[in-house]
Design a protein around this nucleic acid. Structure first.
Length: 835
RNA sequence: GGGCGCUUAGCUCAGCUGGUCAGAGCGCCUCCCUUACAAGGAGGAUGCCGGGGGUUCGAGUCCCUCAGCGCCCACCA
């Protein structure tokens, strides 16, 4: 007889078992297993910037359920955890947390005291090195807090297998892969107009853009043609100094006479040509537009295709340059110099009104404007030298190959693939990976400086692969001395870092030891599963496929599971700005990890799910029921081994087999939601009906007792294991009462070898339900004896019920049970109430 | 402007290939201290399955269309 607790409880199970799992290394990866035995998961490295929210908990709990199922069905799990501590979110958090900002011109002083963490007031400038040290310090603290939360939630990752996207291995992999891409021509640098955030002062990539609806106004402005004014409508009159041409549709009869002629800009009187171009929309504004360098991405297209000059006036800080541009011989430049775009617009509109070139009142509109997704001001476009990786945006063959990769991937749910197809199909340029920031993986190249002091960007100096990772701002290229840095005839390091996606797109290679552990890599790559959120299909998922396609000519994983969005209880999207974000820790404390895991696993892949406490409560109750029924069944002396003789016991096991078949099939399709539904429903039927029906027989020492005990034991064992991927803690607890070893290393239940008529259980359950109903309606205790119960039903059901008559009689406290064929019905005569 | 998803009892959701598919849980109402569980248990009420058209002998289930919500995308004149 196993030792059972007097009063089982969920309290403390998280701590108890997470410590035990750590002590026993229950989830340690065994690298001696063969490739076929290993299931590898490309865990999303959460952004280490602040706190985890319910959306993270949601996705990670689902993945963990999948991991635990795979482990039980015999797979060895390669289940690492990464931290994405690289990049802008960390920089921003450090700035706010410590009240500092990075100023690379300040020399590093290793003895300088660390700033206090109040983050109030003016941001104090510190050196780049000191800034990076603070990034490491802060992320280390966050990572500890994150790990604590994940352990409480019960993620069965192998905590030996952690990585961070800024650590040595990640930098090594990112730089090595970059150099491979460079050598094969997949990475290149070029001077080009680039979307630019004036606050962060960094280029941003297409994948980091978002459109925001903004208030603006059409200003009707006259250009001066030889035969009178030409009216254009623009939302950005301040860019008139940048105007390089006008453009109209080639079919637009109104403007055809102007093509090939020139007009003069208002205020500055600069001569600009008028060109036809198909992209000009006759319906928009006045049908003729000014091309500026650069007001928007259409300007870039026109500029490139019409071969126009560059006349930039907005600097990288978003302000108009101070020196008067040489193409502006006349005009009120001093009125605009040094102003922000917004200030300049205000002034130039006044000037246009004074000169008579503004016609009518500005007409307010709202229109979409491109922003950096983490930025606060509209993006400008500046020309700068940047690094790119080819992604099919400018190459139809590569694009087709990457679309084919997407088709090879198994998507859960399948409809998410459409997002990938649309994104890849709609790319309009290569992937910009360089960032003018500090806390990231440096671009690992240098440039020669010729004897005149000119930097030779076209011939980057690359390090030997064996030297990686390097930092070109402190490491020296082969054949040079550090003293030659920045000198004529010397060298200079590339100042940029890679975008964080350029590193995290390599999470499969980082996690599996692509460079430093080839044996592990062979066994774990390509990986089995990439779980992630839908919003980063265009970034993380796509860029991972790009990198793997180039280097390995393969997908990085066979399957991807895209989780849904977590909505607040009112079905609104949770967001920090609305202030309706629910934090996980209080909920974990209120409902237990199993309650939260249950809630998460009720959310189907790709389906938005409300953070509903009601569902978490149901999960908690389920966990409590597992405790109680396990205690009771084991207390009855449940024991496997005896022959299953009773028809109702056989019926129970036949139904158990059927449920198990459905649940297992669902699991094999990553459909954890359906698996949970089937298992949970069956579990309650087992508790409410089967246990009630047979407990009397099991208590006794009659001939059927052993059969009941064996059936109870088999079913309990099966259900405990079937629930273990979801209710990881309580399943482990009840398993420990009567079994050796962790339930999470036990085998996924197999169907029992048994035959029988499943109806026997159904009719018996129906019969006691009827009897319970009569008693409840008579408002008497369920213990009230039944003097006589007459049950009539179809011949088939009557025959089945007769096989379970003794259990029904005992469970219903029935003195005389009559079963006959006839119209389905019951007639119950209750015993006189005991007064 | 385009795409994808969702819309089923007050709430959260199942309903997979059209024919016991009108369901579950929560909440609500009634009852029961039954020696596994009162942080229980038993029973009950509740829905023109978003609107409108089709297809079919038959439609939450397929087609068209409209509406609302969410997400993703879109060249900002």
């Amino acid at each position: 007889m196993p030792e059972l607790p007097e009063k089982p409880s969920l309290d403390g199970l998280e701590q108890k078992w997470s410590q035990r799992w750590e002590r026993d290394q229950t989830f340690a990866f065994d690298r001696n297993k063969t490739r076929e035995q290993i299931f590898s998961i490309d865990t999303p490295p959460p952004t280490v910037s602040g706190s985890l929210h319910m959306g993270s908990v949601f996705g990670y709990a689902q993945t963990d359920a999948i991991a635990r199922y795979q482990r039980m069905r015999g797979m060895e799990l390669f289940y690492p955890m990464g931290w994405d501590d690289n990049g802008l979110p960390t920089e921003r958090r450090v700035q706010n947390f410590y009240g500092v900002r990075c100023d690379p011109s300040i020399p590093y002083d290793p003895d300088a005291p660390l700033p206090k963490g109040d983050g109030k007031g003016e941001q104090r400038p510190i050196s780049r090195q000191a800034f990076i040290e603070l990034c490491h310090k802060l992320t280390a603290e966050d990572e500890r807090a994150f790990e604590e939360l994940w352990r409480t939630l019960g993620l069965s990752v192998d905590w030996q297998l952690t990585y961070a996207t800024i650590d040595d291995r990640s930098r090594l992999v990112a730089q090595r892969m970059f150099l491979r891409n460079l050598a094969r021509g997949e990475a290149y640098a070029t001077d080009a107009p680039t979307l630019w955030d004036v606050d962060f002062q960094s280029a941003v990539a297409q994948a980091e853009l978002e459109d925001r609806e903004q208030q603006a106004a059409y200003h009707r402005i006259s250009f001066h043609g030889p035969n009178g004014p030409i009216f254009i409508e623009t939302t950005r009159p301040e860019l008139i100094p940048s105007c390089v041409a006008l453009v109209a549709n080639p079919d637009d009869a109104r403007y055809q006479p102007l093509f090939g002629t020139t007009v003069r800009t208002p205020l500055f009187d600069v001569e600009v040509p008028v060109h036809p171009h198909a992209l000009a929309d006759p319906e928009k504004g006045s049908g003729i537009a000014m091309i500026c360098t650069f007001g928007d991405t259409t300007d870039v297209t026109w500029w490139r295709e019409l071969d126009l000059p560059v006349r930039t006036v907005i600097q990288r800080d978003g302000r108009f340059q101070v020196p008067q541009p040489d193409w502006l011989a006349t005009g009120p430049w001093e009125e605009l110099a040094g102003k922000t775009a917004k200030q300049a617009q205000k002034r130039i509109v006044e000037l246009l009104a004074e000169s008579g070139d503004l016609h009518g009142e500005p007409r307010p509109i709202t229109h979409p404007v491109k922003f950096f997704e983490k930025g606060d001001r509209p993006l400008e476009i500046v020309t700068s030298r940047q690094w790119y990786i080819r992604n099919g945006g400018r190459d139809p063959e590569l694009r087709a190959a990457l679309l084919e990769r997407g088709a090879q991937l198994r998507w859960h749910p399948p409809f998410m693939k459409v997002r990938y197809d649309h994104w890849v199909g709609g790319l309009n340029g290569d992937w910009l990976i360089s960032r003018q920031r500090f806390f990231g993986v440096p671009i690992p190249v240098w440039y020669r400086i010729d004897e005149h002091g000119t930097v030779l960007h076209d011939e980057p100096l690359v390090p030997d692969e064996m030297r990686l990772p390097i930092d070109p701002s402190s490491d020296t290229p082969e054949g040079f001395e550090e003293s030659q840095r920045g000198q004529p005839g010397g060298f200079v390091g590339d100042p940029d870092v890679m975008d964080t996606w350029a590193t995290s797109s390599l999470s499969p290679q980082i996690a599996t030891g692509w460079i430093d552990d080839p044996e592990l890599f062979d066994k774990t790559f390509p990986m089995n599963l990439r779980p992630q959120g839908p919003e980063i299909i265009r970034t993380w998922l796509f860029s991972s496929i790009v990198r793997s396609h180039f280097e390995h000519d393969a997908l990085p994983w066979s399957d991807t599971n895209i989780n849904g969005w977590v909505l607040d209880p009112d079905r609104k999207k949770m967001s920090k700005s609305i202030g309706n974000v629910v934090t996980p820790m209080p909920l974990l404390e209120e409902f237990g990890a199993d309650g939260i895991r249950y809630w998460a696993c009720r959310g189907a892949p790709g389906t938005d799910t409300a953070a509903d406490k009601g569902v978490m409560k149901v999960g908690r109750r389920l966990a409590i029921k597992v405790l109680n029924v396990s205690k009771f069944v084991l207390g009855l002396g449940a024991e496997e081994g005896a022959e299953i003789t009773e028809p109702i016991d056989r019926a129970m096991l036949v139904q158990l087999n059927a449920m198990l078949g459905e649940a297992t099939a669902a699991w094999e399709d990553f459909d954890y939601t359906r698996a949970l539904d089937r298992i949970e429903t069956f579990f309650w039927r087992f508790c409410d009906d089967y246990v009630e029906l047979v407990k009397g027989r099991a208590y006794g020492d009659g001939p059927g007792a052993a059969s009941a005990k064996a059936t109870l034991a088999t079913t309990l064992s099966t259900l405990q294991r079937a629930l273990a991927p979801f209710l990881a803690f309580v399943a482990e607890e009840v398993w420990s009462w009567w079994q050796d070893g962790s339930i999470h290393r036990a085998s996924w239940p197999e169907p029992v070898a048994i035959e029988g008529d499943p109806i026997v259980f159904d009719v018996a359950a129906d019969a006691i339900a009827q009897i319970r109903k009569v008693k409840t309606e008579a408002k008497v205790s369920l213990r009230t004896p039944v003097e006589r119960a007459t049950i009539t039903d179809t011949p088939e059901r009557v025959a089945a019920l007769r096989q379970a008559a003794s259990d029904v009689r005992e469970a219903g406290a029935i003195t005389e049970l009559l079963v006959d064929e006839g119209e389905p019905g019951v007639d119950i005569v209750l015993a006189a109430p005991v007064s």
